[in-house]
Amino acid sequence: MTPAAAVTVHRWNRASIVTMTALGLLVLVLAFGPAIFGATLTDRMTTLFAYVILAAMWNALAGYAGLVSVGQQAFFGLGAYAAVKLSHGGVEVYLALVLAPLIVGVLSLPLSSFALRLRGGEFAIGMWVFAELMHLLVNLDGLVQGETGTSLIALSSFGPDARRAFNYWVALAVMLALVAAVFFLLRSRTGAAIQAIRDSEEAAASIGVRVMATKRLIFVLAATGCAAAGAITLSTLTTFQPKTYFSVQWTAYMIFMTLVGGLGTFEGPIVGAVIFFIVETVFGAQGVWYLIGLGAAALLFSLFLPRGIWGVLTDRFGIALLPVGYRLRFADATKRTES
C-alpha cells in the first residue's frame, strides 16, 4: 500500500477544469443563439433544452434518489396548465411561464408526503395514477374544455422573431438554472447523502442520513423541473391539449434519455438528451418504427450497457469532466478510485 501521505483528494482535475471552461464558453455562445442560428435551429434548440431538463430531472429522481417514477408527465402537464391559467388570469405571459413551475413545485411538497411513503414499483405506479388524476382534474376546467384544450394566445402579442428568441432564452436560462441546481446539490453535503441513499437506503439511514428529507428535496426539484419543461414546451407549441401534455410518452422519453446517456451520472442524461434529440430529428418521420426503435434501444441499453454511454466512457477512460465526485490520486498516478 502507498503511505497515506502520498494520497491526495481531488475534486478538480485537468479534464474537469478544461470542461468547465469549455462549458462556460459554450453557454456564452448559446446565449447568442437566436442571432447565430436560423429560425428552425433556434426553435429546435429550445426543444432540446426542454429535453435536457427532463432527462436531468428523471435522472436525479431515479439515478440518485432511487425513485423510479412513471408519472412525471403529471408535473409536465401541470406546468403547462399553470402557465395557461396564469396567463389567462392576466399575468404577463413570459412571467407566467417562469412562475408556473415554481407553483407546481410548491404543490408537489404536500404530495411528496404521500408519494414518498410508497416504495419501488408502488411509487412508480402511484405516480402514474397521480398523473391520470391530474389529467382528469385539468379536463374539468371550463377554460380547457376537456380534451379540446386551449392555446397560450397571449404569445401572439409578440412577433415571430421576438417570440422565438424569448422562448429560447427562457428555456436556456431555466435549463442552466436547473442543471446547476443538480450540480451544486450533488457537490454539497446533501449530494453525499443522496448518493448514499442511491447505493443503500437502509445503510444510509443507519449512519444518520435524513433519508426522507433528502428524497423530498429531490422529488420537489424534479417536479419543478418537469413543470418547467412543460411550460417551455407549451411556449414552443402554443397549443395546450391535455392529452398531449399528460401523455406517458414524456416519461418514456425521460427514461430513454437517461438509460442511453447513463443513469446515475451527472453528464449522462445530458448526452442522452442530445442523442434522443438527434434520433428524433432524423428518424421521427418513420412513425411506429421510430417508436419501436426507441423502445428496442432502451431495452438493449438496460440489458447490455446498464450504465449507459457515459457510464461506459467513464469506466473505460476514467473521465470525469465535471467535478461532481471526489477522486483519490495516488502518488504513482496509475491507480485511482472514485466516490
Binding site: 479534464a15 442530445v274 438527434i278 477512460f317 473521465i319 469532466l321
Partner: peptide, 23 residues
C-alpha cells in the same frame, strides 16, 4: 487525462456537428 480530453472533444464535436446538420 490527455487522452480522455481528446476523446471528449472529438465526441462533442461529432455530436454538435450532428445536431447542426440535422437542424
Amino acid at each position: 487525462d490527455l487522452r480522455s480530453r481528446r476523446t471528449f472533444v472529438r465526441g462533442a464535436g461529432a455530436v454538435a456537428g450532428g445536431a447542426l446538420l440535422a437542424g
